[in-house]
């Protein structure tokens, strides 16, 4: 009987030890899991910070682009119109009433044109509000601006203007992507024809820009992931989980298709 009691006592002692060790291992596991969770949390926080800083950078670039457009417009368009108005008004001979009347009418027409141009500029100044109205409107504004130059034959198919979906951060990045692509075309492509398509399909926003410029070898560019502003385009698309398809060949123009999960 005494032997039985000792056996039970031994069993209880050993099992209690095991039962006490189990929470110890549990705590060690929780500690290790928690450490992983902490790293994941910090990484997420870091990514969010990077995203925020990229958004800020994009906002600054969009503003810069707007300022450049305004400066160019003021210099090349409104400035010229007002200079012409001054010249016309200076040449008015009040003794020749008929001619003077015609010149004043011309000046008036030039001033009205300048006012119209300034109104257009005012719209540009509200570029950020334009994005708030939806990416469709922002793309429209960008295309109108490109069309005003009259340098390119433009074909556009923007189906995003009717869309009710919005995603403020992504909209800003998409607008900047379009601006960068257009800048590249203007600076390097020597194109005469540009086609811009934008639409929503299967929960993704598609933006395609095709031109008939001099083209380039995409393998070289992809290998370097640099040059012609492509680096920042790739980086931003990656940031919003998008995809980019680049088709180009020397002498055969370039086509850039972007697909971004939306909204």
């Amino acid at each position: 009987m005494q032997n039985e009691t000792t056996k039970i006592a031994l069993l209880v002692a050993v099992s209690t030890l095991v039962f006490l060790l189990m929470p110890v291992f549990l705590i060690l596991y929780i500690r290790s899991y928690n450490r992983h969770k902490k790293n994941h949390f910090l990484e997420k926080q870091n990514m969010q910070q990077r995203f925020d800083s990229e958004i800020l950078q994009t906002r600054i670039e969009v503003q810069d682009q707007t300022m450049q457009s305004i400066a160019t417009e003021l210099h090349d368009n409104v400035g010229q119109l007002l200079s012409l108005t001054t010249l016309t008004l200076n040449s008015v001979n009040l003794n020749d009433a008929e001619k003077a009347k015609r010149k004043i009418e011309n000046s008036l027409s030039l001033v009205n044109k300048s006012i119209k141009e300034l109104r257009e500029l005012a719209k540009l100044l509200h570029g950020e509000q334009l994005v708030e109205n939806g990416i469709g409107h922002a793309i429209d504004q960008e295309i109108n601006w490109l069309g005003k130059a009259g340098t390119y034959e433009l074909k556009t198919n923007n189906l995003l203007t009717d869309s009710q979906l919005v995603s403020p951060d992504k909209d800003l990045i998409i607008l900047r992507l379009l601006q960068e692509i257009i800048n590249n075309v203007i600076k390097h492509a020597q194109a005469t024809y540009i086609q811009i398509d934008s639409y929503l399909e299967d929960g993704a926003l598609h933006l395609k820009v095709t031109e008939n410029g001099i083209g380039f070898n995409p393998d070289e560019i992809n290998a370097k992931k640099a040059g012609m502003g492509l680096n920042s385009i790739y980086k931003r698309i990656e940031m919003i989980n998008g995809k980019l398809a680049l088709n180009s060949a020397p002498g055969k123009g370039t086509s850039i298709a972007i697909e971004i999960p939306y909204p």
């Binding site: 000792t6 039970i8 006592a9 209880v12």
Partner: peptide, 27 residues
Amino acid sequence: LFYYFGSTMSNIFDGLFSVKIIGVATL
């Protein structure tokens, strides 16, 4: 957790063992 999980075996076998290990103190 330590207290209630650790005392499980002692509760189950309560009264079945009364081995003295340190002087008069039971296990």
